[in-house]
Amino acid sequence: MVWSDFERFGRLWDPWADFERMRRALYRWTTAPFAEFPLVNVWASGEEAIVTTEIPGVDPQSIDISVTGKTLTIRGSRDPEELRDGESYHRRERWTGQFTKTIEMPFAIEAGTVEAKFSKGVLRIIAPRAEAEKPKKISVKSD
């Protein structure tokens, strides 16, 4: 059975697509890529930071999160499909194996109260700001 990627053909040639491909190929081999796998988004308020990352298909039991001061580390893994005799890949694009991601948080984290939720392949970590680091409100007295 032959598969063809519909999106690659049958459309107008996009000159920028080639540039994008070259740029990716170039950065793959340099020591400082844009960001390490898995990609994260970090949201912050005065009280807490929220980290989200897309790691579909990972067993939630295998996700390991650790915090030291301002550094948050996420570890996990995903196993490849097990193929039996006579089964073969037509395409293999999905990642497998282990990953480790270290994120520099905008402030120190209270390690004991970090919460994490894994839903629809998206990991969401709620990391409260360390008590000592919380901004102090200074009230202004009037005479």
């Binding site: 059975m1 598969w3 579909p56 298909g57 499909e81 193929l83 039996r84 006579g86 089964e87 073969s88 890949y89 037509h90 395409r91 293999r92 694009e93 999905r94 392949g121």
Partner: peptide, 15 residues
């Protein structure tokens, strides 16, 4: 996407 051909079927797996 991963596409696996098996004896009786084709499996498409998408992240």
């Amino acid at each position: 996407v991963d596409i696996v051909e098996r004896k009786d079927d084709i499996v498409v797996i998408a992240d």
